[in-house]
Amino acid sequence: MQQILAHTPAWVFGLLLGLIVLGLQQARNRQVKLWLAYLLPSGMVILSLIGVTSNFGVQLVTISLWMAGLCAVALLGNHLLPVKNLRYFAESNRFYIPGSWIPLLVILAIFFTKYVVAVLYALGNPITVHTAFMPVLCVVYGGFSGYFVARALCLVRASRTGNELLPAN
Rank of each mutant, 00 (worst) to 15 (best):
M1E: 11
L137A: 01
T8Q: 07
H7Q: 15
C71W: 12
L105M: 15
N163W: 10
V119W: 03
P41Y: 02
P135T: 01
R28D: 11
W101M: 15
W66L: 08
I97Q: 05
A72R: 06
I97T: 01
I102C: 04
V45D: 00
L34V: 11
Y115H: 04
W35G: 09
G43F: 06
F111G: 04
T113H: 08
L34K: 13
N78C: 09
C71V: 15
A72P: 02
V119F: 06
V139L: 13
G124K: 04
L166C: 08
C138R: 01
K84L: 10
T53P: 02
F144V: 07
V140N: 03
I97E: 03
F133G: 04
T8C: 05
K33N: 10
F148K: 01
S48H: 00
Q31C: 10
N125D: 14
T53N: 08
V73F: 09
L166M: 13
F112K: 07
G162Y: 09
S54R: 13
A68E: 04
T53R: 06
L120M: 13
G77D: 02
S64H: 05
L24F: 11
F89Y: 12
L137I: 08
M134A: 14
V116R: 05
S100P: 06
S92G: 02
L166H: 15
G43M: 10
L47C: 09
G142H: 00
W11L: 07
A122H: 09
I110P: 04
P82F: 03
A168F: 11
F13T: 03
M44G: 02
L17F: 15
A68R: 05
G23N: 05
L80W: 14
S42C: 12
A10S: 11
I50W: 09
P103N: 07
L15P: 02
L22V: 13
T131G: 07
R157L: 11
A72D: 01
R87A: 09
R160F: 11
I50S: 10
T128W: 01
W11C: 03
H7T: 10
C138I: 00
G77T: 02
R30C: 05
S145R: 01
P9F: 03
S159L: 06
A118L: 10
N78I: 01
A6E: 13
T8W: 03
P126Y: 08
H79D: 12
V21G: 07
W66T: 04
R151T: 11
M134I: 04
G14P: 03
S100H: 07
F95V: 04
L70P: 04
A90K: 12
Y88M: 00
F95M: 01
G57Q: 08
L19P: 03
L80V: 14
N78S: 15
F13L: 13
Y115C: 00
L120K: 05
V139H: 00
R94E: 13
I107E: 06
A72S: 13
F89N: 10
V73Q: 02
A74R: 05
N93Q: 14
V129T: 15
Y141N: 08
V21F: 13
V45E: 05
I110T: 09
L39C: 09
K84C: 06
L165C: 04
G143F: 02
P82E: 03
Y141V: 00
I110D: 04
L166V: 13
V116Q: 07
V119T: 11
M134L: 11
L5F: 15
W101V: 14
V106S: 00
V21R: 09
A90H: 12
V129K: 10
N163L: 12
T8H: 04
I107A: 06
